[in-house]
Design a protein around this nucleic acid. Sequence first.
DNA 1: TTGATTTATACTTAATTTGTATGAATTGGG
DNA 2: CCCAATTCATACAAATTAAGTATAAATCAA
Lengths: 304, 304
Amino acid sequence: MELKTLRTFVAVAELRNFSAAARRLHTVQPAISRQIAELEEELGVPLLWRSTREVRVTATGEVLLEDARRMLALEVEARERVTRAASGHTGQLRIGYMSSATARFLPTLLQQFSARYPDVHLELFEMTAQQQLEAFARQEIDLGFSRPLPEPETLGLERLSLYQDRLMAVLPRSHPLAGLQRLSLKALAQEAFVLFERGQASGLFDMIISACGEAGYSPRVIRQPAQMQTLISLVASGLGVAIAPACIRFLQSEGCVFIPLHLAPPPIALELHYSRDPLRPTVDAFLKEARQMQVGIKALMELE
Amino acid sequence: MELKTLRTFVAVAELRNFSAAARRLHTVQPAISRQIAELEEELGVPLLWRSTREVRVTATGEVLLEDARRMLALEVEARERVTRAASGHTGQLRIGYMSSATARFLPTLLQQFSARYPDVHLELFEMTAQQQLEAFARQEIDLGFSRPLPEPETLGLERLSLYQDRLMAVLPRSHPLAGLQRLSLKALAQEAFVLFERGQASGLFDMIISACGEAGYSPRVIRQPAQMQTLISLVASGLGVAIAPACIRFLQSEGCVFIPLHLAPPPIALELHYSRDPLRPTVDAFLKEARQMQVGIKALMELE
DNA sequence: TTGATTTATACTTAATTTGTATGAATTGGG
DNA sequence: CCCAATTCATACAAATTAAGTATAAATCAA
């Protein structure tokens, strides 16, 4: 039983005429006769009663007619569903993100995406860069917002840089240097440092250490919190100073001041990673949306 | 899109391996490759992601997979439904009947049929032989229980004789001849006759008239009721006598006696008519059942 | 690096389907 | 009452389509 045969059968049953069905299907009458005969032979059952003047659908034929119509309708529906899925308008999207770096723009981006793709089921997972890597390997997420990963290509990942985050000095509001417009790393040589835990973001950690090294000292690190919010709280309480990406000023940062660094280390990117093998069209749809918003994201994160 | 292609797609998606799918489908791997490639091209969409080491179903492929399985399941169901319909186990059966002639056995026959074919929807229409003819012409009934019809073959009808009904004299219980075991038609020459209306059953009517003619008289017909029950009531009330098929003694016949006729006219058959063109397998199923019960019907109607 | 395994492609061969011509049956009009 | 017209079935040749064979390219494991 093939859909082509069923299309023929439905046409004949509807028109009650082999020749007319042939015309509708852009073929010739003997082709129709054979298809019907073969269908009847395959099922071992008469479906149509025909004389030279009249074609009638048997009771058995009516039963098949119903199911044939269902199958053909299902084919049309399947085409539609496949098309929608392939264009990224339906399906799911599992997103890993670091809240500290994305708090400012991710809600807006997601809202915008959902408005345009309302039938895509979004799943959000807050995770560090390292956790995202593992999640990608286990195929548990489709997109990840994180700091640059080491050699993403070898893991089958593509990347899209969303914006560059400058490093800034974070001082308690009561700190003697808190009023300055600009600060050199050297000026912090004697300070106690609170740095984001190396395990979570080795690139950031090492960059700060080497920048201090270039400024002529090795920083005295007294705490390594695993959360940016903790880091801010520690600085606000006067325990030490920090060097951190500018984005964290959008977290709860009462009691801290953020001062641009003179001769700052190169800015650190926020990247959107995704699998190179395109198993999820929703990813492409999201990327399109993200690329359109990219300018806006940059403006949000860098200006002000 | 053809079911064959979808079967291939489902096999590959399930086995995640083109070669294994080829083996399952008893063909060769290049055939599978081509079918999948053509399906993807037709839909304009990647369904499977494949390397030489791994085959994965894309999100779009998963969507099609669901619908493909539905279609294939529907095909299996359709086959089953068609088979059941063709064997007469499902469907409908519209039956015309004359209650006077069938009251005795039809309920039993229907009950028996329903027990064996519980999913056949029975529709019953009480109608005279003439009405049955018209109903057949309009294709409103599939089976008709009636007296023999004139030239049923020319109307595309087949017939099955169920039993032969003798004609009997029907007299009021108070009638002088009511005590006899046997009666000649001649003995009724002076009686007033109540005969079943000719329009309803011309064969019966004419047979009685000609039988009387052979007995040497023309009966004096004072009433021609259209219902057998009415005829019985008229006789019971003493208005006249009647000649009628033996079967009517199974109606409400208090006050009447039924007496066998000496030199009776040939018995009159009860027939089951049905269309020659087999549009309804339920008809064949019913006929099979009816033929099996035929002996029983004869016994019921003739003995006693 | 080699051997094994897997998918894709090129090409030949086989199978299937179509289209043409024609026959048989039935109906309606002249 | 016959003839033209229409309809479905069948036979056969032609064309299309799909399958099978051989082989290439890629990847992974030993």
